[in-house]
């Protein structure tokens, strides 16, 4: 039913964090129903059968929600379809004879571990700095004790949809993590429960973000364009606002 596609995959190979890498090109026969990762599976299966080392790439849920898959396909994190993670990108977006260039995320704060896998632990540390509401299990009042306006809850949800994949950093020519950081600040900041810590949270999270060595936002918008969950730039404005308010009117943290 579906014709085979003969593709060439030009992929970044790097043994480990310390080694220097280079591109290798491999032929692969795919079909249009495969996901991009399944195409890589087929390529890897072929490499293993030749007793060669398969291409290391990270992946898990393969349904676009865990945020594990991370690669740059022809210059775009998660490839050409907008609002789509690599695992849900299907080969019908490519055509027979294509040469597809696959690279790891590039940012100094995301060092390459091996081939296409990078270290995104900086994101965890940003959350640890303040991306939470301080409430212990068992302390909570009734869920309906504080009504939350539907629109506000919606804004919060849209920011909370971030899957922490790091495509924003990968897409940003400055290697900035402001879309990620701001999504968490906005997710919690839009809610009355989160307001309590609205002084500490932005200051602590921004400080950690800077410390990790991410670049500074210059409002290019590549992050928003490439975000598989379509997180908006408004969140960065929200973060800037929250941060300025906290710095100029709140306690020092």
């Amino acid at each position: 039913m579906s014709a085979d596609m003969n593709l060439k995959i030009k992929v970044w190979r790097q043994k480990n964090n310390k080694a220097s890498g280079s591109f290798e090109t491999y032929p692969v026969v795919a079909n249009e129903h495969m996901s991009f990762l399944e195409m890589l599976d087929v390529l890897n299966e072929g490499l293993i059968n030749q007793k060669k080392e398969p291409i290391a790439f990270e992946h898990d849920c393969r349904e676009g929600i865990c945020g594990t898959c991370s690669m740059v396909i022809n210059g775009q994190p998660h490839g050409p379809s907008s609002g789509t993670t690599t695992c849900q990108l299907h080969m019908r977006h490519f055509k027979d004879g294509d040469i597809i260039v696959v690279e790891p995320y590039r940012a100094s704060a995301f060092p390459v571990l091996k081939d296409l896998a990078v270290d995104r632990s900086a994101f965890d540390r940003i959350i640890q700095a303040g991306g939470y509401i301080s409430v212990n299990a068992g302390q909570a009042p009734d869920g309906n004790a504080i009504p939350i306006e539907k629109g506000r809850a919606g804004q919060s949800f849209e920011a909370a949809a971030c899957i922490g994949c790091g495509a924003c950093v990968a897409a940003c020519p400055n290697g900035s993590a402001m879309l990620f950081t701001s999504a968490k600040i906005a997710h919690l900041g839009h809610l009355p429960q989160g307001e309590v810590e609205s002084n500490k949270r932005p200051q602590a999270m921004v400080a950690q973000m800077d410390k990790e060595g991410f670049g500074m936002c210059s409002n290019i918008g590549a992050c928003e364009a490439e975000c598989p969950k379509e997180i908006k730039l408004e969140n960065i404005a929200f973060m800037n606002r929250s941060y300025l308010k906290a710095v100029f009117s709140g306690e020092e943290v």
Binding site: I133, A140, P141, G143, K150, H187, L188, L191, Q193
Partner: peptide
């Protein structure tokens, strides 16, 4: 209750 307090944005 716990999840609402943590900031889980449930439908409203």
């Amino acid at each position: 209750d716990q999840c609402v307090a943590q900031g889980v944005p449930f439908a409203r």
